[in-house]
């Protein structure tokens, strides 16, 4: 028994020791690799391709960050995390940044001691059902069996939604998206619920995507974004402004095609400041002038990444919707680079 206690204490001490170490930027530079927490596999957002290379919308953010900090968008170690393990992985220092469709909530920000660096996808929780069920609204789901990924905000939203509508349901808690898919396709649950983007991404991998519908109700706000540990403000700033650089790049028309042209200098001072031809913004957080240039160059600006991984031309097929630039009626609005 004593031995167990000792081992437990050792594990805990190890965990805490990892978390307490200060400057993440120095750690990443010394390691030469960025450790990025992603999902265990959600097509469009983060999934390994046929060659084992990770690709997706969340993955691209990590690549941009690695390019900005280390100058190499492939200097990344991807750590697949489940809904349950992700926060422990980040808190313990197992990953430097978590880019895993994680909803920004008060308690996660304040109580779990994390720092959300922005929102890279405005989402909401939805329901997917087989067409053959003949259901057209979430209000008709009384008594249904619902598959749900455990350890997520969707679990709490679901409980609230059914309670406030005086409906009954049978939750089937599931660890990963792949298992949920298996149970849903076999009919072991009537409904699969998660963020609407996740539903679209999951449906894209089905054999007959047309046999399934996503119900119109969106029952929650799910602002998804990358997050880092609380307490290392410098690293938080780097992560935040890398995301902002991608968003601003789209707004200012910097694309992976014209970036080299623009990097020679333009008459737009903000573009010049982002690309490092004017002033030294990178130096303010101990990076070089070219950090944002490399981040944008890695995969393109926000809009390009969106279209490439989850946009309407992809199997996932998501419209920009709320995720359009503010000038186009969306919510994306980056603070100025000044």
């Amino acid at each position: 028994m004593k031995k167990h206690l000792l081992l437990g204490a050792l594990a805990v001490a190890g965990l805490a020791a990892g978390a307490a170490s200060g400057a993440t930027l120095d750690d990443v530079k010394a390691r030469g690799k960025l450790k990025c927490g992603v999902t265990t596999g959600l097509v469009g957002f983060a999934a390994p391709d046929a060659n084992g290379n990770w690709a997706g919308f969340d993955v691209s953010y990590c690549r941009a960050l690695a390019a900005a900090v280390l100058g190499d968008q492939n200097a990344i170690e991807f750590v697949p995390t489940t809904g349950k393990t992700r926060f422990t992985a980040l808190a313990s220092g197992e990953v430097d940044v978590l880019a895993r469709n994680t909803t920004w909530t008060f308690s996660r920000d304040v109580d779990l001691k994390f720092e959300f660096v922005g929102i890279n996808y405005y989402d909401g929780q939805g329901f997917m059902v087989p067409k053959s069920l003949g259901v057209s609204s979430a209000k008709e789901l009384d008594g249904a069996t619902v598959c749900i990924q455990t350890g997520t905000t969707t679990e709490l939203n679901l409980a609230d939604f059914f309670r406030s509508n005086n409906m009954d349901y049978e939750p089937v808690p599931i660890e990963t998206n792949a298992e949920a898919q298996q149970q849903f396709l076999a009919g072991a649950c009537d409904v699969y619920t998660t963020d609407a983007s996740g539903l679209a991404a999951t449906r894209a991998t089905f054999e007959n995507p047309g046999d399934y519908v996503i119900l119109p109700e969106i029952i929650s706000k799910e602002p998804l974004g990358p997050l880092v540990r609380h307490g290392d403000q410098e690293w938080g700033d780097i992560a935040r402004w890398t995301l902002n650089a991608l968003i601003s790049a789209e707004e200012l028309g910097i694309t992976s095609a014209n970036i080299d042209e623009l990097a020679k200098g333009t008459n737009n001072p903000e573009i010049n400041r982002i690309l490092g031809t004017e002033g030294d913004l990178g130096g303010m957080f101990r990076l070089d002038k070219q950090w944002a240039y490399r981040a944008i160059k890695a995969g393109g600006n926000y809009g390009e990444l969106f279209e490439k991984h989850i946009g309407e031309s992809t199997p996932v097929g998501l419209a920009r919707g709320l995720n359009a630039q503010w000038k186009d009626g969306g919510l994306l609005y980056s603070p100025p680079f000044r």
Partner: peptide
């Protein structure tokens, strides 16, 4: 049990509760 979604004490206290409250230790 969590492998098949059976809500035992590891699934409730050590799973969802731990995750929602962040009180790992």
């Amino acid at each position: 049990a969590i492998a098949v979604g059976y809500m035992d004490i590891t699934g409730t206290l050590g799973g969802i509760t731990l995750n929602q409250t962040g009180r790992e230790l």
